[in-house]
Nucleic acid binder design. Structure first.
Length: 634
RNA sequence: CGGGGCGUAGCCUAGUGGCUAUGGCGCCUGCUUUGGGAGCAGGAUAUCGAAGGUUCGAGUCCUUUCGCCCCGACCA
């Protein structure tokens, strides 16, 4: 496997260069190896020999077009929920993507490695993630009963390696990366390749002696990711993100904006502010005024904020609502679990962002509380607040909207009653944090502009891990003064299959796929409609020898079938061999992305024309590439 | 994990307790055809997801179970 990976990394560019300069690389006569038909060129293929077939109808369950076409064109096949095989066409595209990734990772000093998918659980116990990650991580025992896990990421393994390899400041900075399978037992795989359980990820890990070094590596990735996505033809935006289970502080996600995405992205229409809704901030108004006396009032049939505001004829902005959750708190060192009621209090006109609440509560997991659990704390659902409630067993998180506003209406923990003029600090207490969910139309926290929300797919992320892993796993180095210090780490991921899925979603029309030339499995689809196979074979040969990758439709099929399959697979350039034009020494050429463009090339100059066309299509991708840089905040 | 839906040939699908399980695509054979999923003739392929039950009789009803999909919870 290793050698195959290595072989692959001798890019096709290199091979084609060799072919151009050394005539002996071209094979003029077909050969046979054993009983298998000889495939004359790995980077080209005959349709008659292609392993996969195309499907006329979409298999049930293909609910988005990109996924449907990947299935119908024979790029991928599903094995189980969230588990897919890559067939030759799909794998070829994936290899093209991986090659781009390798080139850009190498360019920022990355060294490729390969780490095991099966890990002894010990290292995961060291960081505590063996305990803090729920069933998303699959575990098993080996034959002698040792705990093992299937790696869902590789911080533990890479830190284990680094604590051996890196012992001195002289051995840093370092950057390693791998392109490796990950297994995450997602409770709900969906949307084809977008959200799967087994997937290929490029993950890289940086090691530095100080924050400045980490910033440098982070900035390098920040830009390299734009180059990677740009070269595949996928336009992404970068958003501020939550570091979630990774630990660490600064992180960004690369988002492909699309309605099929599951992440909600908040962007400002006036400035460059973008963030995942999980962490997005916005400008709140506060209603500070002189505190008035707490007063209990009868509010029959007002279990909701809307009903309450209606009944009291006040704005929801003058109410405080409490949201009851149950948090799971796991001790990282031994896995002991504790459940506590978490009460999020927010002004009635705002919504709670659960991710923010979970972070503020420092909980490992959060779920809605059942009414019995709420009642057990002495709180009456529908008329609940934490006023007059013992707070030793519950965790109260107050959004700053309630903490900085006065005289709000809050529940009195009695059916049909509320308090007027409740005030934070005077009547109740809690940890103050921003736990409000940013919504479309709210004011930008940076510039006051209007926020907008859109859907996106996360195709990459970058994290500043800091010393979260080096400290817990004892990955220390000696500095210039002989002092032991924890290595400062970063981790950076790209979902390879998800990237292909996004490209399929972005690049298709009603006939099929239309992947960018940098990613398409082959550059040219050679469709032969002539009886005389000899001339077609010769052209196929010529193209291969020129280093152009070709899918050659040599099947005994009707023209309609061949065209339909060519459209479905959607290679960037289609060369059609027809009797009429061939008689004049010409072939017809169509560009998949531009159906109106009908070209006719002389056979004699075909190769040159192809090279120009390929170059043009490649340039189209790189010319529209959008790059951004990142600088650490002062 | 909660709610819903679906499992019938490689794919899509008909079937509403009653005879030998429907049709299309695909597949195989022969002939014909070769510029947009062609035509004619013939053919193969289904333990109706699995197990149990009700019934004279079950693809169809009931129970259990497995799998897949959708919504939600969940999600680096």
């Amino acid at each position: 496997m290793n050698s195959a990976t290595l072989l692959r990394s001798f890019s096709k560019r290199l091979i084609s260069m060799m072919r151009v300069y050394h005539g002996e690389f071209s094979l003029s006569t077909p050969r046979r190896f054993g009983t298998m038909p000889f495939v004359e060129e790995k980077l080209s293929m005959r349709m008659s020999q292609l392993f996969s077939k195309t499907l006329r109808e979409a298999p049930a369950g293909a609910d988005n077009k990109g996924y449907e076409y990947l299935l119908r064109a024979g790029f991928i096949r599903q094995l189980g929920a969230g588990i897919f095989s890559l067939l030759p066409l799909g794998y070829s595209s994936v290899k093209n993507i991986e090659q781009i990734i390798r080139e850009e990772m190498d360019a920022i000093g990355g060294q490729e490695i390969l780490m095991p998918v099966v890990n002894p659980a010990d290292i995961w116990k060291e960081t505590g993630r063996f305990y803090s990650i729920d069933r998303e991580m699959s575990r098993f025992q080996d034959r002698v009963g040792r705990d093992m896990v299937l790696a869902m990421t590789h911080e533990e393994v890479v830190t284990d390696i680094a604590r051996f390899e890196i012992d001195s400041y002289k051995r840093m900075p370092q950057l390693v990366y791998q392109i490796q399978t990950k297994w995450r037992d997602d409770p709900r795989p969906r949307a084809g390749l977008i959200r799967v359980r087994e997937f290929t990820m490029k993950d890289s890990y940086s090691f530095d002696t100080d924050q400045a070094g980490l910033d440098k590596q982070y900035a390098a990735h920040y830009l390299a990711y734009f180059k990677i996505f740009g070269r595949t033809g996928l336009s992404t935006i970068v958003v501020g993100a939550d570091s979630g289970m990774m630990g660490g502080k600064i992180s960004h996600e690369y988002m492909y904006l699309s309605p099929i995405g599951e992440d909600t992205i908040i962007t400002c229409d006036a400035c460059s502010y973008t963030a995942n809704r999980q962490v997005a901030a916005f400008r709140k108004e506060y209603f500070a005024e002189e505190m008035k006396e707490l007063e209990k009032v009868h509010t029959p049939e007002c279990p909701t904020i809307e009903a309450l505001a209606e009944y009291l004829k006040i704005s929801t902005k003058l109410t405080a609502k409490a949201v009851f959750m149950v948090g799971t708190f796991i001790d990282d060192t031994n896995g002991e679990e504790e459940q506590r009621l978490v009460v999020g209090v927010i002004r009635g006109d705002l919504e709670i962002e659960e991710n923010k609440l979970q972070n503020a509560a420092k909980a490992n997991a959060l779920r809605s509380a059942h009414s019995e659990e709420i009642l057990a704390a002495g709180i009456v659902p529908g008329y609940g607040s934490v006023i007059g409630i013992r707070q030793d067993k519950i965790l109260v998180i107050a959004d700053d909207s309630v903490a900085k506003s006065n005289n709000l209406v809050a529940g009195a923990n009695e059916e049909g009653y509320h308090y007027l003029n409740s005030n934070f600090a005077r009547d109740w207490n809690g940890t103050v944090a921003d736990i409000a969910s940013a919504q479309s139309g709210y004011a930008c926290s940076e510039c006051g502009g209007t926020l907008k929300s859109s859907k996106g797919v996360e195709v990459g992320n970058i994290f500043q891990l800091g010393t979260r892993y080096s400290e817990s796993m004892d990955c220390y180095y000696q500095d210039e003064n002989g002092i032991q210090k924890p290595v400062i780490m970063g981790s950076y991921g790209i979902g390879v299959g998800r990237l292909l899925a996004c490209l399929a979603e972005e690049y298709h029309d009603e006939l099929g796929l239309n992947l960018p030339i940098t990613v398409a499995p082959y550059q040219v689809h050679l469709v032969s409609l002539v009886k005389d196979a000899e001339i077609a074979e010769k052209i196929y040969r010529t193209l291969i020898d020129a280093g152009i990758t070709v899918l050659y439709d040599d099947r005994k099929e009707s023209a309609g079938v061949k065209f339909a399959d060519a459209d479905l697979i959607g290679l960037p350039i289609r060369i059609t061999l027809g009797n009429r034009s061939l008689k004049e020494g010409k072939v017809e050429v169509k560009v998949r992305s531009n159906p109106d463009e009908q070209l006719s090339f002389d056979l004699a100059t075909l190769v040159d024309k192809m090279r120009v066309l390929i170059k043009r299509l490649e340039n189209q991708i790189t010319d529209s590439m959008h790059l951004e840089e990142w600088k650490p905040e002062k």
